[in-house]
Computed example of a mutant assay.
Amino acid sequence: MSVINLSKGQKIDLTKTNPGLTKIMVGLGWDTNRYSGGHDFDLDASAFLVDQNGKALSDKSFIFYNNLQSEDGSVVHTGDNRTGDGDGDDEQLLVNLRQVPSAVHRVVFTVTIHDADTRSQNFGQVSNAFIRIVNDETHEEIVRYDLGEDFSIETALVVGEIYRHGNEWKFNAIGSGFHGGLASLITEFGLN
């Protein structure tokens, strides 16, 4: 089975075409372009578990380096990577689709730049950003979305999301940039 490469705005079914798919690994990766500022980049992947109105259920529905798993254990962040060096995924989240609470309509995957303002960094200096969905049991990559280079001054990205469609799960390749870093995403998803 070949991996399906998506473009921005494309939606694709996950569970219907992959019967028995219950556990996925969401890998996010990127490369940073060194520049004269000299600061290291520290990019952070996060997930928001949101209801049908697009709002996080609670503070514990925000999964990131200081809260590595959701209350019910359905979404687990495997840990912070502070350099982004090397090939492949820079950070990963594991999702058990069967355990995601019924109140959660979508799981939104984001990437932010830590201390972006202080370090004068933005996604214009980041390249080769991608998200991929892997069947965690067979290690087979199902879907991949390469974001391309169309960002400049943004400091936060909503990369993609998985969402419920009836009894099935689908993936949506979003690729939207935000100003204001992580704080803008926290506000977007209804947290303080």
Rank of each mutant, 00 (worst) to 15 (best):
D40P: 15
P101S: 04
T83L: 02
D31R: 12
L68D: 02
A129Q: 11
G9D: 03
V159E: 03
V104N: 01
Q52V: 12
A183N: 11
S46M: 00
A183I: 11
G29V: 10
Y163G: 15
N135F: 10
I113W: 07
N135R: 07
V111T: 13
G73H: 10
H179K: 09
I12N: 04
D85W: 03
D136S: 14
S74L: 10
M1K: 11
S120L: 05
R119S: 09
R132C: 04
H165F: 10
L43T: 11
E71V: 05
S152W: 00
K55F: 13
T187C: 01
S127W: 01
E188P: 01
L57D: 05
D42S: 01
A183W: 00
N5Q: 11
K8I: 06
N128H: 13
G148S: 10
K11F: 00
A129K: 11
R98G: 14
P101T: 00
L182K: 07
Q99M: 09
S61L: 00
L28I: 15
I24V: 15
G84D: 06
V108H: 00
V100D: 07
N81S: 14
I12T: 15
L68M: 11
T32F: 09
G73K: 05
F151C: 06
N18P: 08
V107Q: 03
D136L: 03
A103D: 14
G38P: 13
H179F: 10
T22W: 00
F123M: 11
N167R: 10
G37N: 13
Q99I: 02
V111E: 12
K55W: 02
K23N: 14
